[in-house]
Structures are given as C-alpha cells and as structure tokens.
Design a binder for these strands. Structure first.
Lengths: 302, 302
DNA sequence: AGTGTAGATGAATCCAATTCATCCAGCGAC
DNA sequence: GTCGCTGGATGAATTGGATTCATCTACACT
C-alpha cells in the first residue's frame, strides 16, 4: 500500500525549501512561521532525518532535503498546471508572462493578435510591471527581463537588444517649428525625460545623448538640466511623445510598432547602446515547450 | 503565484478515480464515503466542471477527470517513492514483489541471497500470496504472474515457462517399494493431489498426466479418482512430497532448487505443458530500472 | 552589553475535514 | 409493480489535525 506523508507537511516543506526561510514560506502560505516549523518537523520525523540545517544561519537544505525538494516542487507545479488546464474554458493552457511595463504595453500588446493566430491553444496572461517577479515562487511562468547582461540564476536566452534614439511625433515637426538638421536643433523643442531606476550611470538619458552628440556638434551647451517634461516611468514619457508634447530618448524596440506605422519618427540618427531582452524561466518548467514557442515567436515578430 | 487546490481534495479525488468508487476510496483512506464526496465536490468547484459522471452507474471519470487523474496519481506515487527513498536507512530502495505462494517459497526465497549479493541497495519485500494484488492500487511494485498467456492490461514480460512431471523424494523410492520402469508403476505409490483454482480444464493434474500416459502405457486403468492425498494449495503438496509421503505432479520451475540439490527427483520423464511466469508492473513505474533489473536477474538464476 | 531576527517548544485554540442523519436514484430480485 | 439494497448527495453537527500564542534559544550586528 502506498504511503503518503501528510500533504500539508509536504506543502510547508516545499515552500520553506524554495524560499530557504520559514518566515517567508509562512508569509507565502498565509500562516505563522510556527506552523511551518511544526509541519516541517512532522515530515522530518516521518523521514527519520533532518531536511533542513538550521544552525548556523542561513537556513539550508540537508542532502535528504535536497533530494526531496525538486520532486515535491515539480509535483506541485504539475498539479497546479494540470488543474489550471482542466479549469480552462476550452482545455487551453496558460502562460503567465511578466514584462517591463513599457515593453508590455508598446511591443507585446500590439503583437498579441499575431500570437493568438499562431497559438490559439496557448493563452497569454500578461503581467506588465517594472517590479521583478519571483519565478521560483510561481509569480509567473516566464519573465521578459531587460538587462545589460544575461541573467545568471535562471534559464535565460537573449531575444534582441535595443538602441536609443530621439523620437517624436510627426505632428510635432509639422507645427512650423525649426527644422532639425543637426543635434543642437533638438534643443528648440520640449525634451521629455523619464527616470531610469536601474542605477546605471550610463543609462540612455538626454544628458547621455547630448554628451555624445556634443562630440560631433560642439554647439550644444553643457547645461546640467536638459529636460522640459519629466516622468517617473518610460511608458508615460512615450505617451506624451505620441501626443506630440515633445521629444524623448526611446528604445527602438519598444516603439518599433509606432515607428513602422509612422505614428512616431526618429528625430535624429545618433544612437546610444541600450540593453538586452531576455526570456527567463525556472529550470524544468512543466510548460517548457510553450515557453520555447513564445521565445521563438518574439524573435520572429521583432 | 502558483495556485494549488486543497491537497486533501486531490488525495480524495485520486483515490476515487483509481478505485472508481467513493466507497472503496473511503475505505482506503480510512474515512466515510461522505468525506470523499465532499472533497471531490470542492475540487469540482475549483475546476469549474464535473470530474466524475455519477449517473448512470457505475461511477466513471469525465474527460476532465481523465486528464487530471494520471497526473495526480503519478505525482503522489513519486512523492511516496521519494519520501521512502529519503527515509531508507542507507539510501536503499525497496521493491515489493508479489508472487504465487509456491513460487515465492520454493523458487524465490532460496535464491534471495543471490539477489542480495548482486543488488545490496535494492531491498526486496516478498508478498507470497495466491491472491491477485492490485498493482494500480499500489499493493505491490511488481507481480510475478503465472498464466497461460501474457497479461494484457499492464506492462508484462515473460521470464520462463514450466512443465509438469511426477516428482518424489529419493527416500520414498529407497523404502523397498516397487521399481518404477513404466508409468503404471507409479500407481503403487501414494499419489498426492492439489487443487487448481484457475478453472483450467487442461490443468496438469494427476488425471491429465495419467490420461496422456495411457497412450504409451495402456495398462493404466481409467478410474476416476487418482489420488491418495489431497491438498488445497500446491505449496502444501510439495511439502508432503519433500517429506516422502508420495508423488505429486509438480512444476519443474517451482521445484528446480530441490531437483538440483537432489532433495527431490523426477519419478517419470513424461511431461505436461505448464504455464508462463511473467513480471508485471504498472506503466511508468518510478522504479522501472529496479524492476528491469529484477526481471533480468530472475532469468539469470533460472 | 544590548537589540533584533528567526526558528523551537508546547499548551491552547480553531476551522477545515469529517461524521451523522437523512434523502435520492438506480438496479436487480421477486 | 414493489421492495430491498447499494452508493452517492446534502447539510448541520462534531472533531482532530493544523495553527496560533506565549515563551525560549541562539546568532549576528552594533
């Protein structure tokens, strides 16, 4: 007769092993840390050996714990996945995709009809956020990460890299303002700034772009502030650009849809290097095939 | 965030799906059928669709239930297996083997030291019984099935086939009784009978053997009853033969150990065809490799 | 030394799981 | 057709394993 340990104990163990913290596991499951401690202890008694090393800090898995953890985690992931699939309206599967807000809004969403046409059985749930969601915690199935280099702690592949140009609406240029023939001409228009929260000193802002442009157009003044309008997030700056309120330094990837359609135009050819877009997921994801399909599709509609 | 349904509901569902009976599932889990009904209902509400068809009888899985069941069952099997492995004394694994009683006692048990020498890390638990255990219910990891043809509903492979001869103890022949030179001479000794419970009209009993022997030795009378001692089970008949109480028609496989050691001898060369021994297990058994090793070992020590 | 953090221990509490009582539907025997 | 049996459904009452609370321990950092 098959002997299953208490399933609640397996659940507590798995969360604690994933988080390597009873406190965090408790928060995730909505119980007190003591409850986690009790359940893990029950499982350790059943196994006849410790599953965690508590002392010294930090919490770590024992060899036995290391053997148990991936099996239980994968089992639970598979359970959640099949229950989700069974619950789905037409037996379709879901991929939860987290992506930076601007990319989700400006790149992903306009292309979703193309995904739907190609993969009607794989429904996407898009989580647009500039927060970094925890894939190991199951917050999403895959993340589109925007970084200078390849993320190292998960399975990742680069999809494409972007560059940054001054971008504006054609309507702005046809309002009778000065023609733009050199970089300094841009200063006659409102410059739209947005914050870079990644702490990168080389982030492609107006000050960076103008510093580089000064080497080919010495007429650009060395003033400290170079913006007329400022936003906290890139997505809002792009909205203002599209509304003809000024010129912003934008990612050619993020606004590629608008550039192609003519809704936005490059105001100048000088480009700053940007970052890479990576599709990232946990190893051995149960929907690995769907994730691969998504990554390939992203490349094909770039 | 990964969404797991209540694990107790999954457990109740899996048992009911495996058994296709709420009553039996309840018995297995040690609860009332109502508890199963409640838990399955909770899961059906989470999935948003029925998982069982209750009406008309018998209970059956819906399409959704069919999709869910193997995933949950395999997950639980894997959980139980890895917890058992982690709990093992020296990281050894266990194979629970069910076998007909006579075979377990006379063939398997005398050879166990050879298994232990070759596979010290795979511990065997032998369940000798003439009942047919339910492998899908996890009653055992593998079964040695004794049948005329290959079992069809599980993964099976034939290990060997046996034949049936008259067998006796050398002590019986040296007691000064008549020499056995022809089949009819056997009738001067006590004939030991045992029941065949498989309903096979051609089962290798004394009446069958004597009917065949009559074609080469017409001196054998056509009486109805041919036995002096009768047992319900083969194993007890073999015990009596080993104790010198008479001659029985025995499987050459089952008593091969005793024939080799000289503890028992063939009383006559005329052989009746027997049956096949098959190693049987559920598909995708988590210890498939160990089962394969066991089957191969059986062949090698035949 | 003092403070904060995180896991451990055990009694008390609690709530999801389970039982109990009753009902419903079908099937087979008569 | 009636009756009895079987097995799942429903909902209120009960219960036992899960959880909390109070307290302790060990450690890391200032």
């Amino acid at each position: 007769m098959r002997k299953l340990p208490p399933l609640g104990s397996l659940r507590a163990f798995e969360a604690a092993a994933r988080r390597l913290s009873f406190r965090e596991a408790a928060a995730e499951l909505g119980v007190t840390p003591t409850a986690i401690s009790h359940q893990v202890r029950i499982l350790e008694e059943i196994c006849g050996r410790p599953l965690f090393r508590r002392r010294p800090r930090p919490l770590a898995l024992t060899d036995a714990g290391e053997r148990l953890f991936p099996v239980i985690r994968n089992g639970f992931d598979t359970f959640a996945s099949v229950v989700t699939a069974v619950s789905a309206k037409t037996g379709r599967t879901t991929l939860r995709v987290t992506s930076p807000n601007a990319f989700a809004s400006r790149w992903l969403v306009p292309r979703l009809p193309r995904w739907r046409k190609l993969y009607p059985q794989i429904r996407l749930e898009i989580i647009g956020t500039d927060d970094v969601l925890n894939l190991r915690a199951g917050d999403a199935d895959l993340a589109i990460r925007y970084a200078r280099t390849m993320p190292a702690d998960l399975v990742a592949r680069e999809i494409f890299r972007d560059s940054f140009f001054p971008v504006c609406s054609p309507a702005l240029l046809s309002e009778g303002g000065p023609a733009i023939t050199r970089a300094a001409d841009l200063l006659h228009y409102p410059l739209i700034h947005y914050d870079w929260l990644n702490g990168d000193r080389e982030a492609p802002s107006w000050s960076r772009w103008l510093a580089v442009a000064r080497s080919v157009d010495p007429g650009i003044p060395t003033a400290t502030e170079h913006w007329d309008l400022s936003f906290r997030e890139e997505i809002h700056a792009i909205d203002a650009v599209a509304a003809g309120q000024g010129i912003a330094i934008c990612s050619d990837v993020v606004v590629s849809h608008e550039i192609e359609s003519g809704a936005l135009v490059k105001a100048h050819d000088l480009a700053l290097p940007g970052y890479g877009f990576y599709v990232v997921h946990v190893p051995d994801h149960p929907r690995r095939a769907s994730i691969e399909a998504f990554a390939a599709w992203m490349r094909s509609v770039a």
